[in-house]
Simulated scan of single mutants.
Amino acid sequence: MTSVDDFRIKSHALLMDLDAATAQMMQLVSARSVSGPAWEEAVKRQHDAYVHWNTFINNRDGADPADAS
């Protein structure tokens, strides 16, 4: 596979994770459950997913952000 394909596949996987985390938060908003442990966990998950995606997109050496942890 080319590096462009690898980039596209990894970016898509990270975006799917970010989308799932955001959807989880929005479900809690719809349920009017925006405080407590479930909310805090959802906020952390969404934040972490965004950080991983953003780091990957802006990383110039192409390394996977999960490998840098």
Rank of each mutant, 00 (worst) to 15 (best):
M1G: 09
M1P: 04
M1C: 06
M1R: 01
T2C: 08
S3N: 10
V4R: 03
V4Y: 09
V4D: 15
D5I: 12
D5E: 13
D6I: 12
D6R: 03
D6H: 02
D6C: 04
F7G: 02
F7P: 04
R8Q: 11
I9D: 01
I9Y: 02
I9V: 11
I9W: 03
I9S: 04
K10H: 03
S11Q: 07
S11E: 14
H12Y: 03
H12V: 04
A13H: 04
A13L: 12
A13C: 03
L14Q: 02
L14K: 02
M16S: 13
M16N: 11
D17K: 01
L18R: 13
L18A: 13
D19E: 11
A20W: 06
A21P: 01
A21E: 06
A21T: 07
T22F: 06
T22D: 15
A23C: 06
A23T: 15
A23L: 13
Q24D: 08
Q24F: 13
Q24P: 04
M26N: 15
V29S: 07
V29L: 10
V29P: 08
A31T: 07
A31P: 05
A31E: 14
R32S: 12
R32Q: 14
S33E: 08
S33K: 06
V34D: 02
V34F: 05
V34L: 03
S35P: 03
S35M: 08
G36N: 09
P37W: 11
P37V: 09
A38Q: 13
A38M: 10
E41Y: 01
E41A: 15
E41I: 15
E41K: 09
A42Q: 06
A42E: 01
A42Y: 10
V43F: 13
V43P: 01
R45T: 13
R45N: 09
Q46A: 13
Q46N: 15
Q46W: 14
Q46H: 14
Q46C: 10
H47T: 15
H47E: 15
D48E: 11
D48Y: 07
D48A: 10
Y50R: 12
Y50Q: 09
Y50M: 03
V51E: 04
V51H: 05
V51Y: 00
H52T: 10
H52R: 08
H52A: 11
W53D: 00
N54S: 09
N54G: 01
T55G: 00
F56R: 01
F56C: 00
F56I: 04
I57E: 00
I57F: 00
I57L: 02
N58K: 00
N59A: 06
D61Y: 06
D61Q: 07
G62M: 04
D64C: 05
P65R: 05
P65Q: 09
A66C: 05
A66D: 14
D67G: 12
A68R: 10
A68S: 15
S69E: 15
S69C: 13
